[in-house]
Amino acid sequence: MALGALEQGLIYSLLAVGVFVSLRILDIPDLTVDGSFITGSAVSVMITQLAPEGGASALIPALSLPAALAAGALAGICTGLIHTKLKVQPLLAGIITMTGLFSINLLVLNEKPTVSINGRPGIFSVLYDLFSVNPTTRKIVAAALLLVIVALVAALLTVFLKTQLGLAIRATGDNEDMVRASSIDSDNMKIIGLAIANGIVALSGAVLAQHQNFADAKAGTGMVVVGIASIIIGETLFGKRSVFNSLLSAIGGALAYRIFIAVVLQLGLKASYFKLLSAVIIIISILIPIASKSIAERRAKEAKNNADD
């Protein structure tokens, strides 16, 4: 159970990192995520299916990951263009792209609600074959591969955020006036930022599809909430001192969230309450810092009153 939660947590930590880029760095609540996550799954599964039957090469499924990332980035560019060039509010721009993506995702999946990789080698099954491992050690191999992918994405993003372009994107979410005054086109920064955010989200969807061997066109609903929940839980548990601290917190938050979900499911909660649980977790995570602050203030006040008496 615990290892399953770890795998899930690592997969969804990519989602959290993607949402972190739009929500925390660009300061845009981007709902494209509900669509682009599935775009990633769909692209990855359809490309994996291209492998010849009975083949065992990891090349095609591995290539499906950057392809999924590119597809997600395109979706992000769409949202960015709608927001910046048509002057549509970011929330609405995301909803427009997400709605359009529902149809596009179905088209990619040949209009079937779920599509499996059809016995073709996936990135995980190739590794399983390679190490000819038994079911228990399989999970360890899977977790190790996921860890490598997450570490790679986090490291690349960290380096990127320290480049000139990365600094400009971060500043755009912090003070757009100042960015334009520094001769930077803030519209372009938002478009690039949303492309990166949705690219990472789509990568998360692709890795999930590889892990479960199928894509589900309807599984995207509420993904953005899952991402935001992970970020807030991470910030509450692990802090947000700097942007890099926050990035690691988002990954930690995604792991904590999955472990929590696994425990609750183990206790007998029905899977249909899943989304409600996600929403409630966000509310509670937001409440904790507010409540602890007001309790601290009240204590300070009482201490002062007592001292005055």
């Binding site: 320290k162 480049t163 000139q164 372009l165 400009a168 001769s183 930077i184």
Partner: peptide
Amino acid sequence: LAYGRGTRRGLSIG
């Protein structure tokens, strides 16, 4: 950021 005024922001170190 201000020091890069008038230049293209690329992938060189910030």
